[in-house]
Amino acid sequence: MFGQGLIKGLSITLKNMFGPKITEEYPEQRPNLPPAFKGSFDLKVPKCIACGLCANACPNKVIKIESEKDENNKKKLTGYTMKTERCLYCGFCVETCPTKALLWNHNFELAKYFRDDVNLDLFSSYVPSPEDEKPAKPEETD
């Protein structure tokens, strides 16, 4: 009979009207992010050995590493900038990092007022923490 489907549709919408709602009231209610979530980047500066693998892995040449050799002829990081405006958020840099110095964090609110503020300077914005001071152990070298 014509109209059966219409009535069924009305009953479905009425049922859902009083059913549970799925809205996430965002600023108060934070999303439940999985561990693998790709937000922004964290760099544990003491762990970084300035090997440059991340910069090489990057498809868009986002990462710029500056380093100098110290007295032991060991590379020491002096600058780490990411032009995040070009970043694909693919995660190849984090994946290739041999010392797990570059990590994802869960900060997804990346909107900024000025274009330059988007880019990250991970070296100078680093906040030292005692956990990072453990000696870096390279898993493998290339």
Binding site: F2, Q4, G5, L6, K8, G9, I12, T13
Partner: peptide
Amino acid sequence: EEYNGLLTGNEIFQ
């Protein structure tokens, strides 16, 4: 079932 009730079975949609 809900999609079918709301859309596929709806006479206007058909």
